[in-house]
Design a protein around this nucleic acid. Structure first.
Length: 400
DNA sequence: CCTCCACAGGAAGCGCAGGAGT
DNA sequence: ACTCCTGCGCTTCCTGTGGAGG
């Protein structure tokens, strides 16, 4: 039944399984992470020898394989645990979503006691639930905390887990912390630092050749045979290598390139699609950024876009270019007007200036001080992206 | 030269939500 | 579960800067 649809869908696509190209997918082998896998493996294999797991802290930029490597090794560990007759359980928590000690422990407690709903229970009850579970099964419980720097009162959480560990006669808790935040270590309490950083690893960024290997592997799995040119892979790797060696970015490029090729009903993904994909990906990042802007910054940006696209009264700087440069005064007037239209109370002019600075920091506009020439002392404001597109993106979000 | 305008950006203070302390 | 405290977003006020115009 599905089959005919399946066939139809397969006709006009270069993909076999686009899922392979997303960051959720973890391949059987991770190219160029052999050393890292080895070290994580060594650390965790203590468990198989009947020793308590050492806590592990992993640092590395985005897209350097921290999460994949960790998950990969833990999968392998879970596969062999029965052979060695040891109890191992593991829970993966992304702390961007669950960013308090309570939420983290709640997740652990629910994992340990799958049918019970612990919401609303005091912290200590959750801790006991986890401890009981570990005790009963003599389990080595590995807690993977991804983006661990996002947890609000992490010191408390670590402290509680240490105490729990001490209270256990059988079984242990091991924490694997993952982050891409360099400064994070310094913010930790010295005690929890020495606990968490028992074992420390840094994942280096991938270089262009390594990215090529990664892409080749995934392309083989995710695309139809021969539908992706080597030159496309090379370009995507090179671009991602420039972009701080981010494998996720490289995969995203090749995925988008494939989608663009599908749109054209092209049979082959060549370099040109990667170039286009790069544009699309960059734009998406920008529009994502705009969507996530605080409301009044969005309104300010909208006002700027509006003024820019009106273009009726723009200012020529030294008569050369006809770039539309705005003064902060008129931006504030427009901002107030937009606020009125939306039935919102406008913030003060002082704060609007802060917004404008913020938008500049984000690269959505460029500002420069007039210095001498134009009016006394003012900020000259220029939109960094096409006004119509910016307006369109904000309009979609603002009305709702 | 002096004053006014248009604005930049620092300082102080205010109300509020949410975390800490008990 | 209670208050207490603190940080944050914001306003208000203020001082400083440089061109325009009398």
């Amino acid at each position: 039944m599905d089959d005919i649809f399946e066939k139809e869908m397969q006709k006009d696509t270069v993909f076999v399984d686009r899922n392979v190209l997303t960051s959720h997918y973890i391949p059987d082998t991770l190219p160029h992470r052999e050393k890292e896998i080895d070290r994580v493996m060594k650390t965790l294999s203590q468990i198989l020898k009947g020793k308590p797991p050492r806590n592990l802290f992993i640092y590395g930029k985005t897209g350097t394989g921290k999460t994949s490597t960790t998950k990969h090794v833990i999968d392998k560990l879970l596969q062999v645990k029965d052979k060695y007759k040891v109890g191992v359980d593991s829970i993966y928590i992304n702390c961007r979503m669950l960013n308090t000690k309570y939420q983290v422990l709640l997740k652990c407690a629910e994992f340990c006691n799958s049918r019970k709903n612990f919401i609303g229970f005091p912290f200590s009850v959750l801790l006991d639930a986890v401890i009981d579970y570990i005790k009963a099964g003599r389990i080595n419980f590995l807690i993977v905390l991804d983006e661990i720097d996002k947890v609000k009162n992490l010191d408390d959480l670590i402290y509680s887990l240490v105490r729990a560990n001490e209270a256990l006669e059988s079984g242990h808790i091991g924490v694997i912390g993952i982050t891409n935040n360099v400064t994070f270590k310094k913010e930790l309490d010295p005690r929890s630092r020495s606990t968490l950083l028992e074992e420390e690893m840094v994942f280096p960024p991938y270089n262009a050749e390594q990215l090529q290997a990664i892409l080749k592997q995934r392309v083989k799995l995710g695309f139809k045979d021969g539908s992706v040119d080597d030159s496309a892979i090379n370009l995507a790797s090179a671009l991602a290598a420039q972009e701080s060696g981010d494998a996720r970015y490289a995969l995203n490029l090749i995925l988008k390139a494939g989608e663009l090729a599908d749109e054209d009903r092209a049979k082959k993904v060549g370099e040109s699609y990667v170039t286009k994909a790069r544009k699309v990906v960059e734009e998406e990042i920008v529009y994502e950024m705009i969507i996530n802007l605080p409301e009044h910054e969005k309104i300010a940006l909208y006002a700027i876009a509006q003024l820019t696209s009106e273009g009726s009264h723009y200012h020529r700087l030294d008569g050369t270019a006809d770039e539309r440069v705005l003064f902060s005064g008129e931006v504030y007037e427009k901002y107030e007007a937009v606020c009125r239209d939306l039935d919102k109370v406008a913030r003060s002019a002082r704060w609007c200036r802060e917004y404008i600075n913020e938008l500049d920091m984000l690269g959505l506009i460029t500002i420069s001080l007039s210095g001498k020439g134009v009016r006394g002392n003012t900020t000259l404001i220029r939109l960094a992206f096409p006004a119509n597109k910016v307006k369109e993106v904000i309009e979609k979000r603002l009305e709702s």
